[in-house]
């Protein structure tokens, strides 16, 4: 009988361990191994030369990678900040209305559900220099048409606009769930105490929402590091390096430049950084909980 229990205990977990082991852990180990080599392909045969830390030493000097890191940070912080404010304001509006909240929710989840590539395609039409809707509006208003995806200055803001359009609804959903989970009696007490709407927002709603806000922020920032699809379609990382992000640098190094060793070093550096961020934020969360 005991054996039966043990057997089931292991069979139920084994598939997960198998997948994680073979397709997540093993590749990471493989990446780590490759990052200490240069790999050359000749007639379908690869030659591996161990180079020690050379690939890692090259990372900070690699023009694309360091710009990619910087752009990713700028992109994530700006775009997530805008999403947080807009998402919160939308949630605040929906939680206070009497009718139509299901309708709004239904519409708002649409951008989350469609492929990033399609979002790229949609905005390719919207942002086109010659016939894009945005420029049509500009002309109609008597302004100069703007080269959204083609100019160094505007490419990053354009990508950020697209990302805000894509992910604000997600922030909205989390904020709405958070707002709906707040204790109602606190707000009733505040009303009885004669609290005005702004004071209520800043002294009661926001402090109570802090845990939700922090979790959403962490979630979105780390996920923003993954951005690739829309950039691939809209700007291809350009013009120049204006929208070069980490995922793109890795893609370029692996598949255009065929520098497997260097690409692996980039990959491992990114995995390491993400792991570090996750562990730090978990530790911070635990610390906050033990304090609170």
């Amino acid at each position: 009988m005991k054996d039966n229990q043990q057997l089931w205990r292991w069979t139920s977990l084994a598939p997960l361990l198998l997948f994680f082991g073979a397709l997540a852990l093993l590749p990471v180990a493989n990446i780590l191994y490759m990052s200490f080599h240069t790999v050359q392909w000749a007639e379908g045969v690869s030659t591996w030369t161990p180079v020690g830390l050379e690939n890692y030493e090259r990372l900070p000097k690699d023009a694309f990678f360091s710009i990619g890191v910087w752009n990713t940070i700028v992109f994530s912080v700006t775009s997530v900040a805008i999403q947080m404010v807009l998402g919160f304001l939308l949630a605040l509006a929906v939680v206070r209305i009497k009718w139509g909240s299901t309708f709004y929710k239904t519409i708002f989840i649409l951008p989350i559900l469609i492929p990033g590539i399609v979002i790229g395609a949609i905005w390719k039409l919207m942002l086109d220099f010659d016939f894009g809707v945005l420029n049509q509006i500009n002309i109609w208003l008597g302004l100069q048409p703007l080269d959204w995806t083609g100019s160094v200055k505007l490419a990053m803001p354009a990508i950020i606009i697209v990302d805000v359009w894509h992910w604000t609804p997600f922030v909205f959903l989390l904020m709405l769930a958070g707002l709906q989970g707040l204790p109602e009696d606190v707000f009733e007490a505040a009303k009885v105490d004669g609290t005005g709407p702004f004071r209520e927002l800043f002294k009661i709603t926001l402090p109570l929402m802090l845990p939700t806000i922090l979790v959403t922020l962490m979630f979105r920032i780390i996920l923003a590091f993954k951005v690739f699809d829309e950039i691939f379609l809209l700007t291809g990382g350009g013009p120049g390096t204006a929208t070069e992000v980490i995922a793109f640098s890795i893609f370029r190094t692996f598949f255009f430049e065929n520098r497997v060793g260097l690409g692996s070093a980039m990959s491992f550096a990114v995995i390491f950084a993400v792991a570090l961020l996750v562990v730090i934020s978990l530790a911070a969360q635990r610390y906050a909980q033990s304090k609170g």
Partner: peptide
């Protein structure tokens, strides 16, 4: 360990591992 690993894995760009998957 399993949960933290899966969290890290979830947040890593897929692009970092395609090279390894390909060779596998």
């Amino acid at each position: 360990a399993i949960l933290i690993f899966s969290m890290i894995f979830n947040m890593t760009p897929a692009m970092t591992l395609v090279g390894a998957w390909h060779s596998l």
